[in-house]
């Protein structure tokens, strides 16, 4: 059960995934009737603004699902486990706009710089003892230079900034389960590569760290581990 703006197109139109084109057509007409006029059924629960939002979603859903070609493409993406927001392809080559890559000299400097993404004061800097091995063994543990951005590192960076996973999910619109799996390095429970890259990019950008490097590093771990399985 999801809020309507997190639903997939089938859920928005309230049809089954194997719905016929007629069923999609009917559902579309019905949704238009329900959410466009001043329906007796909606006014006491949804504001006019919310109805409009639903209508937009309904239009999007109908546009995609009413043509076999776009529907097939969408089904593929759906099977790969992406949410509606990700329908537009994510261009990971695109340079970060909101947060340029930061090459920090120390962890200490990073935290206060990112006030706009922080919800509360950064957690006190932990001692090296608490750091996972990857960082401990690194001579420049205090800097991002030479740090390999794997899931556990991303988690530490996030926690140091006092940012909850919920907030990341909310702001980036990435499913929280994926974020959890990314951090926990559950490589076999992650979405298809192309989407994973998009998520990593967004997540890194939100944390204000070098998104390109995060994708590069993470994908190295990812393919290493996936290769091992085979």
């Amino acid at each position: 059960m999801k809020k309507f703006n997190n639903q997939n197109y089938y859920e928005i139109l309230e049809v089954k995934e194997d719905a016929s084109y007629k069923e999609i057509e009917d559902a579309y007409k019905r949704a238009k009737e329900t959410y466009s006029g001043e329906s007796l059924a909606t006014y006491s629960l949804f504001t006019a603004e919310e109805c409009k939002e639903i209508l937009y979603a309904v239009e999007d859903a109908y546009r995609i699902l009413s043509f076999s070609k776009t529907r097939e493409e969408y089904n593929k993406r759906l099977a790969a486990g992406l949410s509606v927001e990700d329908l537009e392809p994510t261009h990971i080559e695109e340079p970060a706009k909101t947060a340029p890559p930061i090459v920090a000299e120390s962890w200490k400097e990073i935290a206060p710089e990112n006030k706009e993404t922080m919800q509360c004061a950064p957690a006190p800097i932990k001692t090296a003892v608490e750091m996972p091995k990857a960082v401990q063994t690194n001579k420049e543990a205090e800097s991002f230079e030479g740090v390999e951005f794997r899931g556990s590192i991303l988690k530490i960076i996030r926690e140091r900034r006092g940012i909850s996973l919920n907030l990341v999910a909310e702001k980036t619109k990435i499913n929280i389960n994926y974020l959890e799996n990314i951090e926990a390095e559950k490589y076999h429970q992650l979405p298809a590569e192309v989407f994973l890259k998009g998520y990593l990019f967004q997540y890194a950008r939100f944390l204000g760290i070098d998104a390109k490097k995060v994708v590069e590093d993470y994908m190295r771990f990812y393919s290493f581990n996936n290769g091992e399985k085979k």
């Binding site: 309507f4 309230e14 019905r30 009737e33 329900t34 007796l40 059924a41 909606t42 629960l45």
Partner: peptide, 16 residues
């Protein structure tokens, strides 16, 4: 008659 379908849809979207 269609109000029934609209109520159903509204309940699904609002209440789940």
């Amino acid at each position: 008659i269609n109000i029934g379908f609209s109520i159903k849809s509204t309940c699904l979207k609002y209440f789940g």
